[in-house]
Simulated assay, not measured.
Amino acid sequence: MAARRNVLETMEDCELIKRYRLNREGIKLVVELVRDAITSPTNGNNPISPEIKCLATLRYLATGKMQLCNADDLGISQPSVSRAINQTINVLFRPHIIQQFIRFPLDIQHLHRIKANFMAIAGMPGVVGVIDGTHIKIIAPSIDEDVFVNRKKVHSINTQVVFDANFNMLDVVAKWPGATHDSRILMESGLRQHFERHHVPVGCHFLGDSGYPCKTWLLTPYLNPQPGAKLTYNIPQTYTKCCGERNWADETSVFMSSTAKFASPQRGQAQSLYAILHNLCKRRNIPQPEDDDDDEEDDDGDQHDDEFGRVEPSGLAFRDHFVNTHFSELAPAAGVRGEPVGAPRGRVGRGRAGRGRAVTGCAAGRGRAVRGGAAGRGRAGRGRARRGRRGRAV
């Protein structure tokens, strides 16, 4: 057998990131997290070092590479790679390690920072997270195969994720088969208990799509709203949610994509490990290589089922009150031309309107500015509209 190779000593950071999704310092941090638990108790029979075990595990998690190829790269046997992966994953999955990287914050100062970051996107107040369900493909299991088939006829694990405005994962639930509806996962999660037992302060809420029930702590969009406050609310609600989902999917695909290569739904725990690695990369500002493989499927826009997604009158009433409080003064009169017709196309700013700009309180589309701005496709000025453009200053 070839001599064992510790690539930490021979590869540059850019090469490590391509192969392991972490740089040298990130890999060393993972090693220190599990070193005591995976170090061989004796020095007999030339034991495999914790560094080699972690490298084998990270390579498998990052790429799904065949264990035999992994063994050849590191100079150990394929059975040793298999044992190292199982041992390291079991240790990383321990609650005290997961909670170091994935925990929904309950302290007021942290929640205020999250709300401020979301507010800066498109003017949605009180948002402490975006919740979404994503289907991670798996190989068809041999037991209870039918419950893992989602509505797109693909075998998957339905994973619930909550993330903040900086795309850090705040909560991950990765144990439900693909046929399970998003709303059921939420109703049986610990997050629901946090809100309904008032562990989360009043005035904090999630944003979700129409597949979730509307609640006092979960704001969903109106279906087919007429021009007015409801439409004005829908634009930043949808833009904030979709902007976060799109960027989150792009940033996490480098880890999530290899889940499709796992043969068993019990490997859903690996998705929690991907969340750990993702948040570690965010904390350390580790850049990620581009990955064209996209094995995630969103189920946006599903109608909630009768048993778990029942619309609560209190949730609908709260949403109406929220809209009347924050968006009624920003809404244009019904029938006025130049109303926003969609989410902004570009970056978000304050005090400027036009194509792709969002302004304080709501998002501005083509032909409308907010709070005294100019309307149309060009720049906005305070209290005037550009000549020759169709629009209205509000």
Rank of each mutant, 00 (worst) to 15 (best):
A260H: 13
K261G: 06
K261T: 05
K261H: 05
K261C: 12
K261S: 09
F262C: 05
F262H: 08
A263H: 14
A263N: 05
P265Q: 14
P265E: 12
Q266L: 06
Q266G: 07
Q266C: 14
R267S: 09
R267D: 13
R267N: 12
G268W: 09
Q269P: 05
Q269C: 11
Q269I: 06
A270G: 06
A270E: 03
A270R: 14
A270M: 10
Q271R: 01
Q271M: 14
S272L: 15
Y274W: 09
Y274D: 03
Y274V: 01
A275I: 08
A275Q: 02
I276R: 04
I276H: 10
L277F: 05
L277V: 12
H278G: 10
H278A: 11
H278E: 13
N279A: 08
L280R: 02
K282S: 05
K282R: 11
K282F: 10
R283Q: 13
R283I: 01
R283E: 11
R284N: 07
R284L: 14
N285I: 07
N285A: 07
N285S: 10
N285K: 10
I286F: 03
I286T: 13
I286W: 15
I286S: 08
I286H: 04
P287I: 06
P287M: 10
Q288V: 12
Q288G: 02
P289V: 10
P289A: 04
E290F: 13
E290L: 05
D291L: 15
D291N: 15
D292N: 06
D293F: 01
D293Q: 02
D294I: 11
D294A: 03
D294F: 00
D295N: 14
D295V: 05
E297F: 09
E297Q: 10
D298P: 01
D298F: 10
D300N: 03
D300Q: 08
D300F: 04
G301D: 12
G301T: 09
G301M: 01
D302V: 04
D302P: 05
Q303I: 01
Q303M: 12
Q303W: 09
H304V: 00
H304F: 01
H304I: 02
H304G: 14
D305G: 06
D305H: 04
D305Y: 04
D306Q: 05
D306M: 00
D306R: 00
